[in-house]
Amino acid sequence: MGLLMGLATTFSYAHGQIKHSKTITVSIRGNAAGCKTLIEKAGTQKKSSSLTWDAATQKATLVYNPHVTTKDAVLKQVALAGFDNESYNAPAETYRLLPVACRYKGDQETVPPQEHTGHTPVQQEHLSVTTSEIAAVSTLEPLYKAYFAINNALVQSDEKTAAQKAAQLSAAIKAVKMDALATNEHQVWMAVMGDLQKQAAALQSASGIEKQRAAFAPLSGTIYKLIKASSLPYKVYYNHCPMYKGGANWLSNEQGIKNPYYGSRMLTCGSTKETLQ
């Protein structure tokens, strides 16, 4: 993509309202005609700059008053609106928010800096899918899967999904075939079954995210007892949040703290107490 510096630099003194105006050509990326308004709006400011962009050449004519602004100041605004140009690249988040028709780099290129972190939600989703496929060993796996899904929903403060997954959990509890359980699993199951049914039902009927969270705390305690007895092919992290109602725990199949009790308000509150395998 041509990101070369524009060549034409001319002076004119009668360009609209812009005094001492200077006209240059700059390179700005974009693809659809729909981008035109966005780009030009970002680069145009009353009495100081005016931008006219051409989609075919990926170039724009910038008329500005060098006494009040600079080329870079205008191009920074253009980049902050989502468009890479010869001086600045747009913030990745801003680019992603552009209308689909305007995404001149396609969707793949969105966040190069974060590739190495391996923490984008897309990858996480793949991760949990694959782990749960392998993990179909324990009879209780559907139950755990539902639990982790509730956990994720609470992390995201997603009330609707939490309720759906709570229904799945209740169904999974009913569907457990006791004769298929391993011996030690079976013993714990007998002890916790009653609690589990009640707690899952409570969560299912809880209205509002805060009530769901309140119901999630005791459920996590019960699941912990159960999961300890199961041998799973993946790691489970037993986490503790010291602040929620004087301290509450939860289980996660992902390393790292994502607090379901507060969601993004304080996502990282808590610590891993125990790693189960």
């Binding site: 992603r96 928010l97 969707d107 984008t120 929903a153 403060s157 308000r265």
Partner: peptide, 13 residues
């Protein structure tokens, strides 16, 4: 409570 991160399945956007 926050509403920013709430869609399931995760969206690349």
């Amino acid at each position: 409570a926050a509403h920013a991160a709430h869609s399931m399945p995760p969206d690349p956007g």
